[in-house]
């Protein structure tokens, strides 16, 4: 564990509100980027952001100083997302397939929105669609790496898979992205 992490942890575990606010400031951007990309929904990401902070605050007193604080934070964020996926899946299953498809379609168009598409341009929306379209396991590794800034050893630990699995998921994600973006002048 890094020294600055150690000092921060000590203050956090003691329930120091300033330390907590500092932690939130430090991780606000990567955490939000991760939640927003994984959930593919800015409104859900904001909601999940608050949920993660609440869980972090509650879990801090029992946090054991193992590994980096950053990896611990993203483990909590990842679990919050998985819970949400599970909930959404159960809701979707309770709709019949036709209704479900209509809902998915309306969610997808609400997410894209015509104004946003025009403002962000063709390249951005194609990139977003390409990342969103990756197989779930590959997307998780890509986002934990690129937005979470975790090491592959940390990612493997978080996902409970061998290091080589995390590495090959990342490589497949990159190759697949390249394939789906071919012909795009970036």
């Amino acid at each position: 564990m890094r020294q600055d992490d150690e000092e921060l942890c000590r203050r956090l575990k003691a329930g120091d509100p300033e330390a907590f606010k500092g932690l939130v400031r430090d991780y606000e951007r990567p955490l939000y980027a991760y939640l927003c990309s994984l959930l593919r929904d800015p409104a859900a990401a904001e909601d999940a952001f608050s949920e993660v902070l609440m869980k972090v605050w509650k879990a801090l007193p029992s946090y054991r100083d193992e590994g980096r604080l950053q990896a611990w934070l993203f483990t909590i964020a990842h679990r919050v997302c998985l819970d949400r996926f599970e909930l959404a899946k159960r809701r979707e299953e309770s709709l019949d397939s036709e209704q479900g498809a209509a809902l998915r379609e309306s969610l997808a168009s609400a997410e894209r929105g015509p104004e946003r598409e025009a403002a962000d341009g063709e390249i951005r929306s194609r990139l977003e669609a390409a990342i969103a379209g990756l197989p779930e396991e590959q997307r998780q590794v890509l986002l934990l790496k690129e937005y979470g800034g975790l090491t592959f050893a940390e990612i493997a630990g978080l996902l409970g898979c061998p290091l080589s699995t995390a590495l090959s998921r990342m490589r497949y994600a990159a190759l697949k992205l390249r394939g789906s973006l071919e012909g795009l002048d970036a």
Partner: peptide, 12 residues
Amino acid sequence: ASQAAAMVLPEP
């Protein structure tokens, strides 16, 4: 892939 992810980084 790193470039693509950076280009579409969602801002809070």
